[in-house]
């Protein structure tokens, strides 16, 4: 990648900023106030919570697929994308967990509910943390990349099992709580706002991953130059 495409990346970041301003307008001024069951004003947190949780999942899928490609092709480019996606995904998952808790406390009277989505989000967040830590402990960059790729692939393979186990577990232990997403009674303005927010977060995600991937590329070029000078 190197310095090529820097204009494109800056344009993407600019676009994300513009979209985010519009998004904030839609969330706080355009979208109608929700019913009591959804928490009235607190419901607006959903326009942040749903997109960040969804993008977290997407980032995991990207990291896992790129890891498979990296292990089979052995081109550093794929590893850089997986790494960037994992870093950005960790941030999105953190936002999703925090906003979910802040919403659930006033509405459900508890910070955390052990439902399928919550369990899966938390588990993937932990896998991402392991993914990032395993790299920092690796003796060489190459080995760290390979180990991290294996961690991402294992995490992805565990997803259907976590989903099923948490679903059955929930069936045994608690009544299923219907979240706002399951209610299907979203007013059209709310739906538009949510969709716009999803697009905004998607653009932000792509912009951040592209930026981080390019940074890693530059770091590695500098590293190579150092080696050349030293030898």
């Amino acid at each position: 990648m190197g310095s090529t495409g820097i204009g494109g990346r800056q344009a993407l970041l600019g676009l994300a900023a513009l979209l985010f301003l519009t998004n904030i307008y839609l969330i706080f001024l355009y979208a109608p106030t929700a019913s009591e069951a959804l928490g009235i004003q607190v419901q607006r947190i959903f326009y942040f919570h749903v997109p960040s949780a969804l993008l977290g999942m997407i980032s995991f899928a990207v990291a896992a697929v790129m890891s498979v490609v990296y292990l089979t092709r052995r081109n550093r480019k794929w590893d850089r994308i997986a790494w960037a996606s994992a870093e950005v995904g960790t941030v999105f998952f953190t936002v999703a967990i925090a906003t979910g808790a802040v919403w659930a406390k006033p509405v459900w009277q508890k910070w955390w509910v052990w439902d399928v989505n919550g369990t899966l989000t938390f588990m993937l967040w932990l896998v991402f943390i392991g993914y990032l830590i395993v790299r920092s402990y690796a003796p060489t960059v190459e080995r760290g990349s390979r180990w991290a790729a294996v961690v991402a692939i294992f995490g992805a393979a565990a997803v259907p099992f976590v989903y099923m186990a948490a679903d059955w577990w929930e069936g045994v232990h608690t009544e299923r709580v219907t979240g706002p997403a399951a209610q299907g009674s979203l007013q059209s303005e709310m739906f538009i706002t949510l969709m716009f927010s999803l697009v905004t977060f998607l653009v932000l995600f792509i912009a951040l991953v592209a930026e981080r991937t390019a940074q890693r590329g530059n770091e590695e070029s500098i590293e190579d130059l150092y080696k050349e000078v030293a030898s």
Partner: peptide, 20 residues
């Protein structure tokens, strides 16, 4: 076993995956 932090790293990687 190939890292400096083997005692910490194993549970960190192992537990989320075997959660099911």
């Amino acid at each position: 076993s190939n890292t400096r932090a083997r005692e910490v790293l194993l549970p960190l990687l192992f537990l989320p995956i075997v959660l099911p």
